[in-house]
Design a protein around this nucleic acid. Structure first.
Lengths: 171, 171
DNA sequence: GAATAGTCTACTAAATCTATAGACTTTATT
DNA sequence: AATAAAGTCTATAGATTTAGTAGACTATTC
């Protein structure tokens, strides 16, 4: 991986205005990241029966109590199932092929689009917008949303694990 | 524009978990939206000399005082110039072709990537990550970032205005 | 019935977003 | 020189979100 492509025409002052504070603001939340990591972990051990929270927390470096609530959310969303008591834990309820990053991100962080007027299920007009029908900005962000969702939908748990294997092989 | 494509394999519970509060959390900030709208406005009137803040604020439905600080930021970034006193105002310092959405978004909202480990200039390791080199999740988000930046870089002010004209024609 | 393991409710500290208020500086015009 | 126009700078604040933590409760297995 390299980022050479972009160096060519980088015009702007490269300094973010918010240099003093945290600039990683619009990224996916830790909740989503933890969820994805936990799901990949469970996908790798799919079929082995329930896995306890503490194992996932430890192996994936996720705060245990925080992970609890995340897994609970995934259960409510129908992605995971759980078993209480000894020998209990969490396991996938769907096939690894059917759980993709677009859905996980939406579950925890809401719509993937950059603007409310180009979301799939949560459409909302931009307050300041003069005419949505002819908005060139919207047109761009609509394109970006579509491409992003397309790539994230392809990225299911099985695919992520496959990529991991490829990356290891290429080392 | 329609969203039919996606309906086919939408597996998850379609209800966001954070239904009670604002779900439009990860979208671009109002600051960025206002900045883009102001820039497009200035691009349309490029060559007419300085435009006063209040005119932009009024026409684009942006809170005046808020817009002030945004334009100041854009000036500091070298995108705009200003003139004080009577007959003053703001105007583009760069060609409309050279001001693109990727740069504007970065300026106000920080990196475009979904993960700190795939940013172009603000790389940071994910704390919880076990091995970045073989991370399938990173691989996916790297792809998404590249495609997104590609589309957003193409979207310069001239392009946005061109799209607007096309959309009007198609009505 | 004891140990294991998930469930639920409540709380908190820190940060960010979206502004608003007001004093100050520079410039053009009369 | 005075005045009005217009951008600049500093400070503040309410609302919301994020990333947790604490602790009591419930169900299951041995």
């Amino acid at each position: 991986m390299d980022f050479e492509i972009e160096i060519a025409n980088y015009n702007f002052s490269s300094i973010f205005l918010k240099m003093n504070n945290d600039i990683f603001v619009r990224m996916i939340s830790k909740k989503t990241k933890y969820a994805i990591n936990a799901l990949v972990y469970l996908a790798k051990r799919n079929g082995e029966g329930p896995i306890v929270i503490s194992e996932i927390a430890e192996k994936e470096h996720i705060p245990r109590k925080f992970l609890e609530s995340i897994l609970l959310n995934l259960k409510k969303a129908g992605v995971l199932a759980s078993k209480k008591g000894k020998g209990g834990g969490y396991y996938l309820l769907q096939n690894p092929e059917d759980i993709n990053l677009a859905d996980v991100m939406r579950l925890f962080d809401g719509p993937i689009a950059f603007l409310p007027c180009v979301t799939y299920k949560y459409y909302e007009r931009c307050e300041e917008c003069k005419d949505e029908e002819t908005c060139g900005i919207r047109d761009v962000f609509y394109e970006v949303r579509n491409k992003t969702v397309e790539l994230l939908k392809k990225a299911n748990l099985a695919e992520i694990i496959k990529r991991e294997r490829h990356l290891i092989t290429d080392l």
